[in-house]
Design a protein around this nucleic acid. Structure first.
Lengths: 192, 192
DNA sequence: GTCTATATACAGATAGAC
DNA sequence: GTCTATCTGTATATAGAC
């Protein structure tokens, strides 16, 4: 692996765990086994390195349409829930990173910020759309407000994520909570 | 107000918004209109100041029993939800602070960490207990697992909190989401 | 208790040899 | 491209006057 990539990988790990300010370039250099000067040669300054790290981190953040619209309408909502949960599971570290960015007054370039938010909104609209489709086909209760309910489903998923991230080891596992979520927020809406 | 308190208040605000490392004592001194040396005279060093800030911040974190058991059983769950939401609303800044602490590899003394976790667990047990009471008195469906369902309710509340903290301004307000939560995770369980 | 002045360490960043 | 040596600013922390 070339030095540039080595620096990038090391910096990604360190920024994610300690944040921007608490990560010194001396430490990055040491952990990547290069000199501090080399970091500047490749990335010019600390902020540039950080932006490169963010760009690298956000790369897998996208919605893959082919994964979505291939299920019968009532199950589509649960399928979307599984996709969301699967994505989070595969990207725990960067998800934790972005979440902590949202909570801090830290360095957070707006373009990345809004890109994550847009993805989130888009996903919520997909869930809302699936709920509406279920209502129109008569398989889901017409009583609920699809938009608000979709927002609740996503919020609950985020809450489960937070619970998993903060590492509370007791009783309810994330998987158990997701099952409970599906049972309460989807299955219970099915028209018999 | 005496200088010690002024320092403590200023430091609380700054640590909460910028974190431990990004808050310099020079800034605290300037914002509190005292000399840097005075901070050291009162708190010895930066870590001590930080611990004092944490102790001050966690002070209102407690469960008040008199607020809890004064409702009819089926409404008790919704009452607990309101209490949780109310607490969060009143303490947004410190809640945000603690949440970001949980997500970072930052300075986080374990005693504070576990105290917050214990409170959370205790609260979840209160919700589970209320659910069980409802099931025993026949007002709530016996089908659900009270522990898992209580965990889901708390997770959802945390998710709503995160949504509010990350400041997504569109469509669903936190209040709207809490209403939706009550409708889906409590009302829908009522036995007619 | 509160200040100014200072010591010491380490941060981000540059110069210049190879 | 990669290094060592160095500059400059600012951080935590101390000394000592009042």
């Amino acid at each position: 692996m070339d030095a540039r990539t080595k620096i990038l990988e090391t910096a990604t790990r360190l920024f994610a765990t300690h944040g921007y300010d608490s990560t010194s370039l001396s430490l990055v250099a040491k952990d990547a086994s290069v000199s501090k000067a080399l970091i500047f040669w490749h990335f010019e300054n600390k902020e540039n390195l950080y932006e490169a790290v963010l760009a690298r981190t956000i790369e897998p953040y996208r919605i893959e349409p082919e994964r979505i619209a291939d299920k019968s309408v009532p199950d589509q909502v649960e399928h979307l829930i599984d996709l969301y949960y699967g994505f989070i599971t595969e990207n725990v570290h960067s998800v934790r990173f972005f979440l902590s960015l949202f909570l801090r007054d830290d360095k957070r370039p707006d373009d990345f910020f809004t890109r994550v938010l847009d993805l989130y909104k888009h996903y919520r609209e997909l869930v809302a759309g699936a709920l509406r489709a279920g209502q129109q086909s008569g398989t889901l209760s017409a009583e609920i407000d699809a938009e608000a309910h979709a927002a609740l489903i996503l919020s609950s998923l985020n809450g489960i994520l937070v619970q998993a991230l903060t590492g509370e080891q007791d009783t309810a596992s994330p998987e158990r909570l997701v099952r409970e979520l599906k049972a309460s927020l989807v299955d219970r809406l099915r028209v018999q």
